[in-house]
Amino acid sequence: MPRMDADSSQPVVCVRGLAKRFGDIQALAGIDFDVPAARIVGLLGPNGAGKSTTLHCMLGVIEPDAGTIELRGRSLATHRQHILAEIGFGSASVSLPQNLTVNENLITFGRLYGVRDIRARIAELLEMVELPDVGDRVLSRLSTGQIIRINLTKALIHRPSVLLLDEPTASLDPDIADKVRTLIRRIQRHEGVTVLYTSHNMYEVEQLCDRVIFLNRGRIIARGSPQEILQQFGSESMESFFVQVARGGELIGRQEEDA
């Protein structure tokens, strides 16, 4: 059943003043953003912009120097277990144990998150990702595209209210990437989950995201729907906007920090 977030304009996630420095590098310079319920929000930016650091702070695996992360009004700093129990995470660069079967992996994470009737939930999710017959197969025997879909299944096993996806289509061919995008949209609708999503693929962002937050050098430089950003900065496409930012070009539109 889809999650009922009655008012989708209400933010599920509130991030305020999030800052992190690694040595001389200011990875995040005090960013603020909200993620509204049941929306797909893209967290974009060139390499080193601070996207993954933001996700890792939200997952509690990096401790920020300053700032707060709240999920439905609860702070991650004080309610870590409750909040992590509501978040699902998937990434192309983070694996599940390859020497276990799909079922063994999903049972492990189902137990970790206290899922009731794990077998039924696994069957439901494998059906949704169109891999109903791979449960007994060892993960290392699956294709990259299938593994990405199993990663998504793991991220959803406990019916999270927020899904954090770190470049889930990286290194996939266009066909599989398109299938994964379709799947993410289907998951969002079917499970009613709020998705925060990082990607370098601007076509994907235009296709998938309701809103985007554009980071560069640890600062938010733009936010809004993809159309709003294109209008605001007079770019032809998200791709050209991305290239402009990545090459340090002057942005014609009004930037966040000048607002």
Partner: peptide
């Protein structure tokens, strides 16, 4: 080895 440490420590386990 399985590069899954983040999956584990980003779960509610203490």
């Amino acid at each position: 080895w399985s590069r899954s440490a983040i999956n584990l420590f980003a779960s509610p386990i203490s």
